[in-house]
Design a protein around this nucleic acid. Sequence first.
DNA 1: CTCTTATGGGTAACCGCTATCTATTAGCCA
DNA 2: TGGCTAATAGATAGCGGTTACCCATAAGAG
Lengths: 177, 177
Amino acid sequence: MQDAVLAMLAKEPSHGYHLHARLRRSLGPLGESMNRGQIYVTLARLERAGLVVCERADGLPERPERKVYALTPAGQQRVAAWLAEVGWPKPDLAEFHLKLAAAAAARLADPVELVAAQRRELLRRLREAQRAALAEPVGSGAGLLLEGVVLRLQADLRWLDACERAWSKVDDEVEGG
Amino acid sequence: MQDAVLAMLAKEPSHGYHLHARLRRSLGPLGESMNRGQIYVTLARLERAGLVVCERADGLPERPERKVYALTPAGQQRVAAWLAEVGWPKPDLAEFHLKLAAAAAARLADPVELVAAQRRELLRRLREAQRAALAEPVGSGAGLLLEGVVLRLQADLRWLDACERAWSKVDDEVEGG
DNA sequence: CTCTTATGGGTAACCGCTATCTATTAGCCA
DNA sequence: TGGCTAATAGATAGCGGTTACCCATAAGAG
């Protein structure tokens, strides 16, 4: 979040609400879930860390005071460092994996059933993402983002197939043994 | 995290360190990054919420006191609810997307270069995951998990290809215009 | 016998995010 | 004109997770 805000400020100084709007526009449909208040918390921390400064540009006395923030040299340095680093979020498949293991171990549910339910959900999201991608203008950033979502969902569906194969075999062994 | 701990307790009561070991074993190489202290924080919260109870079973006086936790009826209910829900983590591609946009807008870096660097990193991780998968016994839970990681990385690499195509086109337009 | 290291178990502080609350501005409508 | 609603701008509290650190035991090394 901090890096995202700094990245927006690298283009031009803004106040909290404007930053929020720019982020949402940049992320398209995936930015819907962004919280408004988070921006201000993040800005306060960035200011405390000396990465941004607040230039009070409340020119109109009748408007609510809005604080316009801009990058400090340290902030620019951090943006450059962020751009230079090659990080990638680690896959978060552990939860479903544990769910299957727990269901089988405690005999609380049928793992193959859980996989089937999950596949229905992912197919639903896949259709939704494809529909949203069609609504975006071609070549837009949001459309590209949605393409990534679609590719991920397809990969996850393939993984569910593998899960089903694996847990079906376990069931057979239990029944057979 | 809470659900993961509850799921382990659904199979059998355990104390903190044992739970940590079981979780790590169940997750294979992906469990390496798990923090030990987190287990105790989580157990304390679960106890406060009335989902688990602590039966002090420190039979040997010379051993350090270890608290054995077990599910309460409310805890069993929550495990059942967790198994019933069909959730899936949302794709977290936004950070890289913002990185590309910020690099291009502030002219701090070449987006196509960033994509190339990211591709190198993902290929490295892909090789690593495939190697780890070969080290796991076939049919084990950890092996299945690693297969999911591999499928995801392959999907992300395809997305990077799409990113490169999109941002190359943008560069052409800028140069041409 | 002491020093060091590894293991087992725990606590506290910090950080990020979400939800919620306040206050002002603007638009609408009766 | 008064009252309702939405949008804008900002602040706060609480939850969940991670990190860093602390305490005790056990095993070796000198």
